[in-house]
Computed example of a mutant assay.
Amino acid sequence: MKLTLGLPDPVVVTVSHWPQPGDDAVAGPPALPGFVDSSFSPLVAVVAERCFAQTAARERTGLVLVSRSGDLAGATHVREAVAEGKRIGPLHFFQSVPNSVAGHVAARFGLRGPVVCISPQEDPHRAGLDEAALLLADGEADQVLIVLVEQARTGDTAVALLVSGGEQ
């Protein structure tokens, strides 16, 4: 499939998921220091770690974080605290922006490419591939980690795709 801009789809190098066999989907992903009361950021971190366990990140690796709804659990906590007149802790403010966990992942794995967070109304997978294709075509990155994450009452899910422009 080609993008409307005529760019080829990136080539998938590796893929990781949450949950996968052996994961405790009820308990959620492993805790992520500095991020509290929500599975959103830990989901991003665990699928990124799983991707980079399969292949090393290049220095010029970009990151595209894709979520239709963002951190629902975090937003709910803040909304309820405000409605009840309670003080919101600084960690909740920090993690209310998806760039926080994206920056954490970039620092942890030494990524030096661009970081983009998007919330598409249409197909999130397609939107992530399109954004990665643009970063690769611009020469901004040699590869891009696309992380798609959603929280839902039926269970949290995350997928990470490490993609390149085709040269390996």
Rank of each mutant, 00 (worst) to 15 (best):
A27D: 11
G28Q: 01
V149A: 06
T55S: 02
L134S: 14
M1E: 09
V82L: 15
T4Y: 13
H125M: 09
C117L: 12
E140M: 05
A158H: 03
D71H: 08
G34W: 07
T55W: 00
V46D: 03
F93G: 13
F93A: 15
R68E: 04
Q151K: 00
L3Q: 07
R58N: 03
R68I: 03
E150D: 13
K86E: 03
L72E: 07
R112Q: 15
H104G: 08
R112W: 12
A27T: 11
E84N: 05
L135S: 15
S164D: 03
S16F: 06
G70E: 02
S39A: 09
L7Q: 01
T154Y: 05
S67R: 05
P29T: 06
E59F: 09
V44M: 06
T76N: 14
A160I: 00
P30Y: 11
L63R: 01
D37G: 06
H77K: 13
V97E: 05
D71L: 01
V116F: 07
A127M: 02
S16I: 02
R126F: 05
P33H: 04
S96C: 14
L148K: 03
P8C: 09
P114K: 08
D156V: 06
D142T: 08
V115L: 15
V13D: 00
A31Y: 09
A27W: 02
S100I: 12
S41R: 08
V147G: 00
S96T: 07
A102D: 04
I146P: 01
S39V: 10
E167T: 13
P19N: 07
L136P: 05
L32P: 01
H17E: 12
S67K: 02
A75L: 04
A132R: 06
F93L: 15
L145H: 02
A31F: 05
L3M: 12
S164T: 01
F52A: 07
L43P: 01
P42F: 02
R79K: 14
V105D: 10
V82F: 14
R108D: 09
E122N: 12
S96G: 15
V82W: 13
A81W: 09
A31Q: 11
P42N: 07
R79I: 15
F52G: 04
V163K: 00
Q54E: 13
F40L: 02
V15P: 02
V11W: 01
L134I: 10
G34H: 09
Q151A: 04
G155F: 01
E131Y: 05
V159H: 04
E84M: 13
F109Q: 12
K2R: 13
H104E: 09
Q168E: 10
L3N: 13
R126S: 06
R68P: 05
A107M: 13
T55F: 00
V116A: 14
S39R: 10
V12N: 07
E80S: 08
S164V: 00
G22K: 10
V159Q: 09
G22W: 00
G70C: 03
L136M: 09
R87S: 05
P120T: 11
V11Q: 08
M1V: 04
W18N: 06
Q20W: 13
L134R: 11
R108M: 14
S39W: 08
A107D: 10
C51M: 06
A75W: 04
F109W: 15
A127E: 07
A81V: 11
S41L: 14
A45E: 05
L43N: 03
V78Y: 04
Q121R: 15
V46Q: 07
G110W: 13
G166R: 08
R112I: 02
S38T: 15
E80L: 10
R60P: 06
